[in-house]
Design a protein around this nucleic acid. Structure first.
Lengths: 143, 143
DNA sequence: TTCATTAATTGTATCCATTACAAATTTGAT
DNA sequence: ATCAAATTTGTAATGGATACAATTAATGAA
């Protein structure tokens, strides 16, 4: 059975979807809830594995297409960090990422908005997304 | 026939390779020369297409493995901008990129070194690469 | 509620960039 | 010239992502 909190989270997800003009299907709500609650920058694979336990009929194609819709609607960020897997991020507030090349851990880093938008000498361009990534070895993996 | 300038460029590439402990094979020299002279952030495909005219026996596998070696040696940057193709950059001096989502044009943006390395509140990490990308529509594509 | 319309999901087949690998070739040193 | 080690080559395989047609679900009107 669902707790009050879980219902709230679901209502938020449904409202977000409706506001974006997306029908709040079982699958979409579940996927949006998932990335709203998990700060691990999950891949399609990870989201599919987690949710197919609760929604056994879930198709991986649906996860792909839903995440694309969410990203287009501005409800998620799609991060192409390593060229192997696309990672998704429910946190859409501007922030950078630190990625450990060994363990794959991805950590959010929140910085000034200026960092993102007020670079000197940017070419004449209508910028709509910024991706800032720091690659290296995390504290654990240096030991 | 080669001009003096072309010979110079070749000698630089050979020296770079030797300094990195990589044998300056015909293929490696050609690939390093190519990314040293072209500022278009080419993909494996583009480099292969261009060079296979001059080196008809060139294998795409060689282009892949060479570019990986160059990147590991610090002689090239590998950029995973769109998750579809990896782009390579012979300019290893720290800089950001502006990418037009429509025409695919990639433009270099040189900024202060502080931009890259002196972020506040970075987690304890040994950072060895920074990737800063601005996505949007270039001036031409907005018209 | 029922129904019709429209949108979303599913599963399969396919695409395509990248990698694995073994054989052939080239490189650099002797 | 010769030899060992490194590199290249070509083919086959891998695997993430997409296309697409059939099925199912969501919405709004009657």
């Amino acid at each position: 059975m669902d707790t009050i909190n879980e219902i709230d989270i679901r209502q938020v997800a449904i409202a977000q979807l409706q506001q974006a003009g997306l029908r709040p299907s079982i699958q979409r709500v579940a996927i949006l809830e998932y990335i709203n609650q998990h700060y691990t920058h999950p891949t399609v694979e990870e989201i599919y594995d987690a949710l197919s336990k609760k929604i056994p009929t879930l198709s991986k194609t649906t996860v792909y297409s839903t995440l694309r819709s969410l990203a287009e609607a501005g409800l998620a960020l799609s991060l192409t960090l390593d060229g192997k897997h696309v990672h998704y991020d429910g946190t859409v507030r501007p922030h950078a990422h630190c990625i450990c090349s060994r363990c794959g851990h991805i950590e959010d880093v929140f910085v000034d908005n200026d960092m993102f938008w007020k670079l000197p000498q940017l070419p004449k361009m209508k910028i709509n997304q910024v991706e800032i990534s720091y690659f290296g070895l995390c504290d654990n993996c240096t030991k």
